[in-house]
Design a protein around this nucleic acid. Structure first.
Lengths: 231, 231
DNA sequence: TAGATTGTTAATCGATTAACAATC
DNA sequence: TAGATTGTTAATCGATTAACAATC
């Protein structure tokens, strides 16, 4: 619980995932604004772009020790620099992908990754037909995962295997050193910020993308809204 | 703001999206448990399965007016029935898909949808090569969207078009009657529960699935955690 | 200067948790 | 009965919002 070191983002009272999510969004928006030639941004600009109130933007920055000008807002270059510093913008954003089915295959070709400086360094599958060690992104047999990981310093993995393979593959990936997961399987790897998995002694961070569940809850939400039963 | 009718889920103090998400998850878990032959479930079973505390489970149910037995927990059949009632489990869970690129194409074949009783009734694209009006799922030109919608009562849509097309297509879909969106484009349709879009007078519900952003924030989270700067 | 925007405090809000009486 | 689990209240926690003094 209190394995949080001092001098951290958490110093005051604001926290973790939701905040980091917001910071990442601010950074993206700022980078876009910069290409348009904007020099100063105001808390309400950023608030609009990220759909939060200006007060939240200011508070977020205030907690991080980022200051603006009482009149001129925030200098975009400084702001970007500070956010990158806080977020520890790693120069290499490399991830591996396990599972090259429909979804995995789509991600292999996903152009946004390139735009955002994310690189899928290698992919893995069990199906011999999918293998392609010499492709733009090498597709290797899963057995080679530990070996590959040992030779490459990568900590983020995308999990896009069938339900039945999810748990064992998750395990393999954790053991091989993956610490952050983008999980497209239907198995909800029970993590809410902190990994609660017994097999995961490393407190990995798992972000579940449960497409089917999200679509299903949309049906409910729309239905409930029509019945006036939801905010 | 206060367009919430009375006698609603919101009666007391619990609310909307997070809650509905949880309810949907309970329901899924219950249906799985039922296939295994379970008859009674306890709040801690469900809590474990959905990664929340038993107290939350009980509170959720209590607010909905769902009661269990002090000793025997909840009867699974009754519980499923009640949840379906509350969620207004629509007999038809049909959605349309716009954009049949890599991601959209993967969703067209997504087997989980079938398992969960979700049907993609039709898909739309601008690329003539993608069209296939007579396929298992008909793929039609986007121009036919309004016409199709007029003839079919569907309110949920999946948006998987390129960034440049996102806004106009969103607009078209709203005008045609879509009220709930699963948005795979990088354009964040600014909705946090309530649609804030001017072009959207209907307060649609948008669920953004920003894969690239989620992956990127994973890099940050893992990095921050290593530096002890995050919960 | 006058006007606008920051930075911060205190108030509010809502959701989670602890705790325990009721009871099966 | 004894033990376990619900249902609910009150306490806690954390995040958002309102408001405004400071100041560029």
């Amino acid at each position: 619980m209190s394995n949080v070191k001092k001098g951290a983002i958490n110093t005051a009272h604001t926290t973790s995932r939701a905040t980091v999510l917001r910071l990442a969004r601010y950074l993206r928006v700022l980078q876009k604004l910069k290409t348009v030639g904007i020099i100063n941004v105001f808390s309400n600009n950023l608030g609009d772009a990220v759909a939060v109130t200006p007060a939240i933007v200011r508070k977020d920055f205030s907690i991080l020790g980022i200051n603006g000008n009482k009149r001129g807002g925030y200098n975009i270059d400084l702001l970007i620099e500070e956010l990158r510093r806080v977020l520890g913008k790693t120069d290499s954003q490399r991830a591996i992908l396990v599972g090259c089915g429909r979804i995995g295959g789509a991600l292999l070709e996903y152009k946004e990754f390139v735009k955002d400086g994310i690189e899928i360094a290698a992919a893995f599958d069990t199906n011999p037909e999918k293998l392609n060690p010499d492709g733009r992104v090498p597709v290797l047999p899963v057995e080679q995962l530990p070996e590959y990981m040992a030779a490459n310093s990568i900590h983020i993995g995308i999990l896009a295997v069938p339900e039945s393979a999810a748990l064992p593959v998750f395990d393999t990936m954790v053991k091989a050193g993956i610490r952050g997961f983008l999980n497209f399987t239907t198995v909800e790897l029970k993590c809410t910020g902190r990994c609660q998995y017994e097999e995961c002694p490393h407190q990995c961070i798992v972000q579940n993308v449960n497409i089917s569940l999200e679509l299903e809850s949309l049906f409910y939400l729309v239905n409930l809204k029509e019945r006036g039963m939801v905010t």
